[in-house]
Write a protein that binds this DNA or RNA. Sequence first.
RNA 1: GGGCCGUUAGCUCAGCUGGUAGAGCACCGGACUUUUAAUCCGGGUGUCGAAGGUUCGAUUCCUUCACGGCUCACCA
Length: 481
Amino acid sequence: MKLEKVKALKKSGKKIYKTRFDKNSDISDIKIKYSSLKAGEKSEEVFKIAGRLISFRKHGKVTFSDLKDFTDKIQLYINQKNIGEEKYNEFLDLDIGDWAGAEGTVFVTHAGELSINVSRFELLSKSLRALPEKWHGLKDKELRYRQRYLDFIVNPEVKNVFLTRIKVINSIRKFLNDSGFNEVETPMLQSIPGGAAARPFRTHHNALDMDLYLRIAPELYLKRLIIAGFDKVFEINRNFRNEGISYKHNPEFTMLEFYQAYADYNDMMDLTEKLIKFVAGESIGKLTTDYRGNNIDLGAEWQCFSMLESIQKFCGIKVSFEDSIKEFEDAAKGMNVEIEKDSGKGKIINKIFEAVVEPKLIQPTFIKDYPIEISPLARRHPDNENLVERFELFIGGEEIANAFSELIDPGEQLDRFRSQAKSKIEEERITGKIDIEFLKALEYGMPPAGGEGIGIDRLVMLLTNSSSIRDVILFPLLRPE
RNA sequence: GGGCCGUUAGCUCAGCUGGUAGAGCACCGGACUUUUAAUCCGGGUGUCGAAGGUUCGAUUCCUUCACGGCUCACCA
């Protein structure tokens, strides 16, 4: 048992948890630099590398071992003749999982493997538990999520997903910074959770003795900054929604929101297409991706339909707000779409759209001009009082972005909040309170602006062909064991 | 919340019609100076998710519960 080994090591006075190690190279750098080294040749350079030992192949007085750092792994060659019997036996006492530092020259073995001929090594930190099996890795999804560190150690593809995620976020920042946007941070703790219609998490501030909510969206604070005079702002941060968990819902998720003064939703559409193309190029190096069995081409021309057009195109039925509510209900029934009682025309259209059209929007497609009934923060469409200037972007059948020309008229905003608060269906979801302070800010005058939100987790899912949001979140929420 | 499925060694899994369990890797002991899923010899390390029930006897059958997966519903 390893614990006995540790006791013996401690008794012998050897330190098994070191404080530091002078490393002079990453393993990937060595591999690149000596990729053309031939069998029998060796480097002059002496490298000091460090990492986790992940395998041993012991052959009497010679041992091979694989050392893995964040960049790559490399084979260590330990020969008793080179390091002496005592140190050699010490090496044999190491375990898979131990952290070690090693020093030596680079050479190529008879079998053609680039290796380090170890002249010195030291144990940096002892591992007490057995790592998952090397060949099958860690398959149990629960364990992979609960013990993500093990997932990283034994399943190499996991690192690529999260490196892509890092690149996605970095490239979004680069694109927006280069486009003149300023990154800001707005409150996570809000006394009235606004900007979306989801159930919030509630918490309590002791000193002020008041309930607070984790934000469900940053929208109303970012708009305050547009009022403050920022022309272009964005925020990349967590939102929290106290709703169901599914392959595309985690209670905390990462959202990009950005707002641009003097712009409308058409400007946001242009910006979105440029942004997504840039991010794909920077993160996965291409404009195509396979997602859920579909080949998606981000480079081709992006489609755009109004919501009503899309229903006509994909459902083969023509709906108009001139029609009676009965005709809407019959249309939904005809498409086998269930609707909640007392749904208005806008809600019914949206239901039909989500059920029938959305799954078919595989290639990048903008759907614009949403029902006003489901868009309390968007500006009314100039040509149709039942619609707003709003679009969503769909790729791979999933919603990627949601944007609109912002409603900046405080009087109309108050009316919209009121009718939203009145709705029985909505009442269950939101606290029912209206953010008076936000309305006050609007009354000081907000310039025309376009605003947009992009769910980062779903974008990363798309670019990494991940089938669950949990595969792109480092530590997804699980019930404690 | 509904439906289906799963939970056996550290990991990946097998275990028939009910007789308290097995393989590979890992681990322990031994051999071995160019292996790479090293090989060879020897060793099984377990509250069979939990609690009840049926039975002479339950990992196996039944019930309930817990946790998880997939899926449907919900979800701006």
